[in-house]
Amino acid sequence: MIGSKPAELSPSGQAITWSDSDKSVAVGAYALRLGDDALVLAHRMAEWIASAPELEEDVALANIGLDLLGQARMLLTYAGEVDGTGRSEDDLAYFRDEREFVNCQLVELPNGDFAVTMARMLVFAAYQYELYDRLCSSSDETLAAVAAKAVKEVAYHRDHATRWVLRLGDGTAESQQRMQAALDVVWPYVSELFEGNELVHGLVGGGIAVDPAELRDPTTDYLTTVIEQATLTVPDTSVWHTGGRRGIHTEALGYLLAEMQHLARTHPGAPW
């Protein structure tokens, strides 16, 4: 089962009194957190292009990557506007260093084989679906609009991953073994998804953000159902990795950013 991290102390409902500018900075940081998740996973999907097992799957993974990239663009643009720094989406995507990225570690994990990519997509889309489903009723109109658009996209990502996990898990002896191994790889990164911090909890109190802890049960229930139906086993993990929200990442993110950012940094401001 997904282990419990120590709960952060400010439960939802306990509103923190912020000045308007403090609140704007917090909303920006929250949008950045959501946007970085989407951006990094979009890049991982893009890495599959021309390498997927079949042409049809190549197109599917590219579509999913483009959905995520669209979410990232909206969220990063909003983050740079609302926090008052005037940073553009490109400033945020291409000119921040590794320690300034606040994505969860799950999305930066290397693609591995196709099973690892599907395991990661299953977990992340299941989480993102529950998140966006609730964020649709955020009191922040921009976040609510982004969520309303994204929740349909994410429903498809979740469906895509679910179907593959079912087929690979309940497939041949080798596909089952590799699908199980893939779940074992991603599972230690699941718990981080449900961690909040003071900033998020402050926004939860104001009706702006979704409390990540609230997503743990519905996400876990969905994943457990799929995994069991796929004749696989929910990994028994005792070590949970965390730190992404504080800018602490696995070694994989640095390589990803080097590839993603080098063109924009070599030719700053280059247009098409």
Partner: peptide
Amino acid sequence: SLHAPDAEMALRNARDV
């Protein structure tokens, strides 16, 4: 046309392609 392992996946591949 397209290739797919079964009808369900064919529908989804068709959606994407």
